[in-house]
């Protein structure tokens, strides 16, 4: 696997993950192993099972943004626009919206991740996505479906408003 990967590395790259809770933590480890930094994670839910992982995360990088929300892409896009990562890895249905931010996107929905071959496949996807960003640039010409004002606000803004 090392030979195939060659000198591939995610050194210095800030990565955002939008995955199910089950895979997000594993993929975070992989990204770190490849030299990348995970700057934020969106998961669909969190429960007791993830307690250990969360504590570990809090110890390692207290700054990292964790967003919990199933099917709330407007919040996620607000956060991603703020963080402006170099790469997005996800398996959700709204990847096109994230592509419009001009960020390279890789879907894990149809990319099997397990085993050494999974890593090699993923590394290939990383390389291609980082090498050519033209599709994102073309998508960015179509405006996002959200108000600019929303994107300027805190991602929790709408929740506070309802509570009041």
């Amino acid at each position: 696997m090392k030979r195939t990967l060659g000198n591939f590395s995610l050194d210095g790259l800030r990565v955002y993950l939008g995955l199910s809770s089950a895979t997000a933590f594993g993929v975070r480890d992989l990204v770190r192993e490849l030299g990348g930094e995970v700057v934020g994670i969106t998961v669909n839910r969190l429960d007791e099972l993830h307690k250990g992982r969360l504590e570990e995360l809090a110890r390692q990088s207290a700054e990292m943004q964790i967003h919990v929300g199933d099917g709330q892409p407007f919040e996620e896009i607000n956060i991603i626009k703020r963080l402006s990562p170099d790469l997005y890895l996800g398996d959700a249905a709204h990847l096109g919206q994230i592509g419009r931010l001009g960020i390279p996107v890789i879907s894990l929905e149809e990319t099997p991740l397990l085993g050494y071959n999974g890593v090699i496949r993923l590394a290939q996807r990383f390389s291609t996505a980082l090498q050519n960003r033209s599709f994102g640039a073309a998508l960015a010409l179509t405006p996002l479906p959200y108000h600019e004002a929303w994107l300027q606000r805190s991602p929790n803004w709408h929740i506070k408003k309802e509570v009041k």
Binding site: L95, G96, R100, S107, R125, A129, F135
Partner: peptide, 10 residues
């Protein structure tokens, strides 16, 4: 776009 990313067109 969504199909593009999902099916790995790139």
């Amino acid at each position: 776009a969504d199909t593009y990313y999902r099916a790995g067109f790139q």
